[in-house]
Amino acid sequence: MAAAAAAGAGPEMVRGQVFDVGPRYTNLSYIGEGAYGMVCSAYDNVNKVRVAIKKISPFEHQTYCQRTLREIKILLRFRHENIIGINDIIRAPTIEQMKDVYIVQDLMETDLYKLLKTQHLSNDHICYFLYQILRGLKYIHSANVLHRDLKPSNLLLNTTCDLKICDFGLARVADPDHDHTGFLTEYVATRWYRAPEIMLNSKGYTKSIDIWSVGCILAEMLSNRPIFPGKHYLDQLNHILGILGSPSQEDLNCIINLKARNYLLSLPHKNKVPWNRLFPNADSKALDLLDKMLTFNPHKRIEVEQALAHPYLEQYYDPSDEPIAEAPFKFDMELDDLPKEKLKELIFEETARFQPGYRS
């Protein structure tokens, strides 16, 4: 834990890192770190609560700039109880001085990944967590956004079992017609939660990839272990087919990539493993919904509104309290091709509203 900075004593240090967030945020305490930044909790002297502050230093890398800009653009436009918001952003007053960006968010005690390492969940908890994931996802999908990296560590939890989806750095506007060349190379989302079509096709992607990830998360809540822990690309596919069985001819016809289709045709026939054999203690309604989410063919996979209306979630289902976005989200430009200098300018502009004396 960093010592509390005395008023006016300059930035606090946390594990050798400068955290320049005073005077409003003090009493910093280390939480963890990701690929390009550290997260601390801090005391907000204005709202009198502890908050989470993520320090991001992305400006050396085009990919990190892209992810940072995506996350900020999306989260500043989203407003939903099951999606983490941005409360404040701290950065230098000029673009030349801006080396880091500090993002202030609600402090959540833990995440689903940490929880599943230590606790076996009751059916009631599984049901409530799944409902909140789908409630947040309904809003995301209504904005025409794909999260693309749903996994237990991106689901934040607090002691009252509130759940918030975080990390929109890989999110995209849904565009089933656009052929994202190089899709697989830039697709760094965790393999275990990846839909089979991501490994088999490169053309376009749809909201059904997020539903697949939610199915993987439900299976993990039922058993405290990942359902498809593939060691590499082909191993991942083999794990999936080992449980779902061989795809039907109709399902194979959806695979545009001939090499991928021929690979699947070359494999020995596998039978589907019954879900109640894998999860003998699970609620039968939970397994019915799991089956509809972990469907090989993305066109037959359940959609988020149908999933919310499934009998497993009937005690929570309330369409009048499951809000959607006001308007579909649009990125003005494809960020993939922009140089990091341009992305830095866009991050600077996007964060201006939090600067003292800002006038829109």
Rank of each mutant, 00 (worst) to 15 (best):
R225S: 15
M333R: 01
N257C: 07
Q105N: 15
N257W: 05
V104W: 07
Q66N: 05
Y233M: 10
G37R: 11
H61K: 08
Q97M: 09
F183I: 15
L265I: 01
A286P: 03
L155M: 13
Y102C: 07
E250R: 07
S284C: 07
A52M: 13
L335C: 00
Y36M: 15
L335K: 03
D283V: 13
P176Q: 14
K48Q: 13
R191F: 01
E96H: 00
R79Y: 04
H310A: 02
D175K: 08
K73L: 12
N158C: 10
L278A: 08
I324T: 00
S208I: 04
L163C: 09
I103A: 03
A309K: 08
C254S: 15
I56H: 14
L116S: 10
P280K: 07
I86N: 13
I56P: 15
R277G: 12
S360C: 10
P229C: 06
G10S: 09
L289R: 07
Y205F: 14
D44I: 09
E186S: 04
G357W: 08
R261P: 10
N87C: 07
E71Y: 00
C161Y: 12
K330Q: 08
G182R: 14
M108R: 04
D124L: 06
D162K: 02
S29A: 03
D100H: 12
L264P: 11
H239Y: 11
T185R: 05
C127I: 11
I324G: 08
I90P: 11
G136D: 00
S41G: 13
E303K: 11
L338R: 00
L313N: 01
P319Y: 10
E326P: 02
R67C: 03
N271A: 04
G357E: 12
S208M: 11
V46E: 11
Q105R: 14
K259N: 13
V51T: 09
S360V: 12
V188Q: 05
E345T: 03
P152E: 09
D210R: 10
V104K: 01
R353P: 05
F59I: 15
V14F: 14
L200E: 06
R77Q: 12
I347C: 11
F78S: 13
G8F: 01
E186R: 07
L146W: 05
R172S: 03
C254L: 08
V39K: 02
D175F: 08
L258I: 07
Q119G: 05
T26C: 06
K342S: 01
L170A: 10
F19Y: 15
N224T: 13
Y205D: 12
L343R: 03
L130S: 11
L112H: 01
K164T: 07
K55Y: 12
N45Q: 14
S202Y: 12
E349A: 07
A6M: 13
R70M: 02
A327R: 05
C161R: 01
S153I: 11
P23N: 01
K54A: 04
L241H: 05
Y358L: 11
K344L: 07
Y113K: 10
L137V: 01
L267F: 01
P229S: 12
A189W: 03
I90D: 00
T206I: 11
R135G: 02
T68H: 15
M221L: 15
Q119H: 13
T206L: 06
N238W: 11
K259V: 05
Y113G: 09
G136C: 08
F329W: 03
E71D: 11
E12R: 10
C40H: 10
H61R: 11
I243F: 14
Q66G: 08
H141M: 10
E334N: 10
L76Q: 14
T190A: 11
Y312Q: 06
N27H: 13
F59W: 10
M13H: 09
M221G: 02
A286N: 01
N224I: 15
H125I: 07
P280W: 11
E322D: 12
T190P: 13
P247K: 11
H125Y: 08
R148V: 05
S213H: 07
G245S: 11
K55Q: 14
L267Y: 02
E326V: 14
K270C: 02
I255S: 10
P152L: 11
I86W: 14
E305A: 13
S213M: 04
P247Q: 13
L237Y: 06
L264I: 03
P196A: 05
F59K: 15
P268T: 14
K292Y: 06
K272T: 08
D167E: 11
S122G: 00
R172F: 01
E314F: 01
R50S: 14
L69D: 00
S57D: 00
V14D: 15
W212Y: 09
L170T: 04
I133R: 01
A309N: 04
H269R: 02
I324L: 13
H239A: 06
R225W: 04
Q132N: 07
K292V: 05
E350H: 02
K54E: 14
N262K: 15
R70D: 01
E186D: 12
L115Q: 14
P339Y: 12
L338K: 11
V273N: 01
K73C: 07
K207E: 00
S202K: 12
R24G: 13
R24K: 05
K117H: 04
I74G: 08
F329A: 04
Q119P: 10
I133G: 00
E12Q: 12
K99F: 03
K300W: 10
E197V: 13
L134K: 06
I72R: 02
G37F: 00
I198T: 00
L146D: 03
I90F: 14
K272G: 08
N271G: 08
R148C: 05
K342V: 07
G169I: 01
